[in-house]
Lab assay of single mutants.
Amino acid sequence: SRSVIRSIIKSSKLNIDHKDYLLDLLNDVKGSKDLKEFHKMLTAILA
């Protein structure tokens, strides 16, 4: 869910600018399909 993804971003080791950017992107995501794609992208970034 959106709140879980937000929590993953906030607890990541990324610097604050990257976190803010990803949180802004997350706010722009519409629909469950796009949310799944965003989660895939985030997982790849944090891997």
Rank of each mutant, 00 (worst) to 15 (best):
S1G: 07
S1P: 11
S1Q: 09
S1R: 12
S1N: 10
S1F: 15
S1A: 14
S1C: 11
R2L: 15
R2P: 04
R2G: 04
R2T: 06
R2H: 08
S3C: 09
S3P: 05
S3E: 12
S3A: 12
S3R: 07
V4S: 09
V4A: 13
V4E: 11
V4W: 08
V4C: 10
V4H: 11
I5Q: 02
I5K: 01
I5D: 01
I5W: 04
I5V: 05
R6N: 04
R6F: 04
S7H: 13
S7W: 15
S7M: 14
S7K: 13
S7Y: 13
I8A: 06
I8H: 03
I8W: 06
I8F: 07
I8E: 04
I8D: 02
I9Y: 00
I9Q: 00
I9S: 00
I9L: 03
I9G: 00
K10R: 11
K10L: 15
K10N: 09
K10P: 00
K10G: 05
S11T: 08
S12E: 02
S12C: 05
S12Y: 02
S12I: 04
K13S: 13
K13Q: 09
K13T: 15
L14Q: 01
L14C: 03
L14S: 01
L14K: 01
L14Y: 04
L14W: 02
L14I: 04
N15I: 06
N15E: 07
N15M: 09
N15F: 09
N15S: 14
N15G: 11
N15R: 12
I16M: 13
I16R: 14
I16Q: 14
I16V: 10
I16K: 12
I16N: 12
D17N: 10
H18N: 05
H18P: 02
H18I: 14
H18L: 14
H18D: 10
K19I: 08
K19S: 02
D20K: 15
D20I: 15
D20S: 15
D20T: 15
Y21Q: 08
Y21E: 05
Y21T: 05
Y21A: 08
Y21S: 05
L22A: 03
L22G: 00
L22F: 04
L22T: 00
L23C: 03
L23F: 05
L23G: 01
L23Y: 07
L23Q: 03
D24H: 14
D24M: 14
D24I: 13
D24A: 15
D24F: 14
D24C: 14
D24L: 14
L25N: 02
L25R: 07
L25M: 12
L25Y: 04
L26D: 00
L26C: 01
L26R: 01
L26Q: 00
N27T: 05
N27C: 04
N27V: 06
N27M: 10
D28I: 08
D28K: 15
D28N: 14
D28A: 14
D28Q: 14
D28G: 13
D28C: 10
D28R: 15
V29F: 04
V29Q: 05
V29R: 04
V29L: 07
V29G: 02
V29S: 04
K30A: 06
K30R: 11
K30F: 06
K30S: 08
K30W: 07
K30E: 07
G31C: 05
G31E: 06
G31R: 06
S32F: 13
S32N: 09
S32T: 12
K33C: 04
K33T: 08
K33Y: 07
K33L: 07
D34V: 05
D34A: 15
D34M: 14
D34W: 11
L35D: 01
L35Y: 05
L35E: 03
L35P: 01
L35H: 02
L35F: 05
K36D: 10
K36G: 08
K36Q: 10
E37K: 15
E37F: 11
E37H: 09
E37Q: 12
E37C: 06
E37G: 07
F38V: 02
F38S: 00
F38P: 00
F38Y: 04
F38L: 03
F38Q: 00
H39K: 12
H39Y: 15
H39N: 07
K40S: 09
K40T: 06
K40Y: 06
K40D: 07
M41S: 04
M41W: 14
M41P: 00
M41R: 09
M41K: 06
M41Q: 06
M41D: 02
M41G: 03
L42M: 05
L42W: 04
T43A: 10
T43C: 09
A44H: 08
A44K: 15
A44V: 10
A44Y: 11
A44Q: 08
A44E: 07
I45W: 12
I45E: 03
I45G: 02
I45F: 11
I45P: 00
I45K: 03
I45R: 01
L46Q: 02
L46E: 01
A47N: 10
A47V: 07
A47L: 12
A47K: 11
A47E: 07
A47D: 08
